[in-house]
Simulated assay, not measured.
Amino acid sequence: MSTTPARLSPARLTTRQFVLLAQLDRDRSVLRAADAVGMSQPAASKLLRELEKTLGVPLFERHARGVEPTPYGEIVMRHAHSVLAEIRRAQEEVEALKRGERLKVAIGSVLSPATDLLPMAISMLEREHPRMQVSVEIDTSRPLVARLLQGRLDLVIGRVLDAEHADVLRVEPLAEEPHHLIARAGHPLTQRRRLRVADLVDHTWVMPAAESILRERVEAMFLQRGLRLPARIVESGSLPLITNLLRRTDMLVALPEEVVRPYCEAGMLAVLPIDLQVRMDSFGLITRRGHPPSRAAVAALRALDEAAQTVYRARPAAATR
């Protein structure tokens, strides 16, 4: 089979192929996927062969337990999810407009902008578009970007961490995210006039998951000074759990100050006097190239741009929506 993709007309791709590909991504079995979408296994196999012939590349490796996508297959399956999501969203928007229902927008965000930028933008949307339904997902950047690429989110406030996504995503930078050392008010370390990183090793830390970039940078803070890593760690990315752990124990955590500012102002938590030099890369507004945003997404992007002028003192967005 040739490994040079042929020039492809969209008319040569069918919705049935996209539906089958999306189901194959879930089942990794032609038999189970065919049954799930209501076709015979021979018909499903024929559709896949036709698609591979059209593209000129192998999409799956067949083995006794089912199929595994090739790198080409991973790309095509990702776009299949996106196409089907766009079709569903188009149908939903048309039906909602026919019924006079509200517009919908789905936003994903990392933690820090969800504490100040998003609430301000949502309050603007509520005033200007009172019938709009806004749904928000809070997570780390990688899963949020994956959902954006699948069409499950309209936009993401986060970071693009994988180089292969650079060509398919548009990023409008917003702000950096320095992290501070946070503990309960009255923590023994709050009595110190001067803190060193070495003073933090023997304390229990709340850390994000081991594969996260923030975890790597917090650990690098110790390792670069020739220190061992803290032995006692609680892993969590849940802000309610983290804040309650801090209030009830002598645990430490690295978080952006604005995330816990209400707790600090209420006298429950405190920012300790040390520069951790732990900073995350700039986050921004992320959308998909080649996918015109819905009316609701356009309104949300404008509200976020306007809110960013206040929250981050950002310059007006150069991109035209």
Rank of each mutant, 00 (worst) to 15 (best):
T3R: 15
T4C: 05
A11C: 11
R16D: 01
L20V: 00
L21E: 01
A22T: 00
A22V: 00
Q23T: 06
Q23M: 01
L24F: 06
V30D: 06
R32F: 04
A34Y: 01
A36S: 02
V37C: 00
A43E: 05
L48Q: 00
L51E: 03
L51M: 10
L51R: 07
E52H: 07
T54W: 02
V57L: 02
F60C: 00
E61N: 12
H63C: 00
A64W: 15
V67Y: 01
I75S: 14
I75D: 12
A80T: 11
A80Y: 03
V83D: 01
V83T: 08
I87S: 02
I87C: 07
E92T: 06
E95W: 05
A96T: 10
K98Y: 13
K104P: 05
A106W: 03
A106Q: 02
I107H: 05
G108F: 02
V110I: 15
A114Q: 15
L117E: 04
M120Q: 13
A121T: 13
S123A: 12
S123R: 05
L125F: 13
L125Q: 03
H129W: 13
H129Y: 11
P130I: 04
R131E: 14
M132D: 09
M132I: 10
E137L: 15
I138V: 11
I138L: 13
T140I: 06
L144V: 06
V145M: 10
Q150C: 01
G151M: 13
D154H: 11
I157H: 04
R159I: 13
D162K: 04
A166M: 03
D167E: 15
L169T: 14
V171D: 08
A175L: 07
E177N: 08
E177Y: 00
H180G: 05
H180T: 10
H180W: 03
L181K: 04
V201Y: 02
H203L: 05
T204N: 03
P208S: 01
S212N: 13
L214N: 04
R215V: 02
M221K: 08
L223K: 04
Q224I: 04
S236R: 11
L239K: 03
L241M: 03
L241Y: 06
L241A: 02
I242H: 09
T243G: 05
L245M: 15
L246S: 14
R247G: 12
R248H: 13
L255W: 08
E257L: 15
V259N: 14
L276D: 03
S282W: 09
G284Q: 12
L285A: 00
R288V: 05
R289K: 13
R289E: 15
G290Y: 10
H291N: 11
P292S: 14
S294W: 07
S294D: 07
A299C: 14
L301V: 06
A303W: 11
D305C: 12
A307M: 07
A308L: 06
V311H: 09
R313P: 01
R315W: 08
R315Y: 09
P316V: 10
A317P: 08
A317S: 04
A317K: 04
A318R: 07
T320V: 12
